[in-house]
Amino acid sequence: MAHHVANTPTQLGEIPKPNTGWIWKTFFILVAITAVEFLLAFTMSAGTFRNSIFIVMTILKAFFIVAEFMHLKHETKALIWTILVPMALLVWLLVALVSEGSSIGEAIFNAFK
């Protein structure tokens, strides 16, 4: 189990004090990233550069949710890789099909020009 939930009851029937500092820290990180995303949505002009920033920030948020809230960071290595490897393959699929989509678009709109 994780290091920060190791507080066990000292006596039977006695409830230990809550240990919530790390939860609020993670929460403020998530809020800060979301706030920056909004700031960028209205200050930067749309384009591939802005989209890449959004995607990096989304993955950062996903990391904090999965690692801290879902506790994956504190599981065994085998479990971590079991979850992450299929997800990495999905990201590959996503990138492949997005570029496939633009090729299809290109073929439809520009083939007879």
Partner: peptide, 9 residues
């Protein structure tokens, strides 16, 4: 993924 493909098409 379908959204990404369809949007870019």
């Amino acid at each position: 993924t379908a959204y990404g493909l369809i949007r870019h098409r």
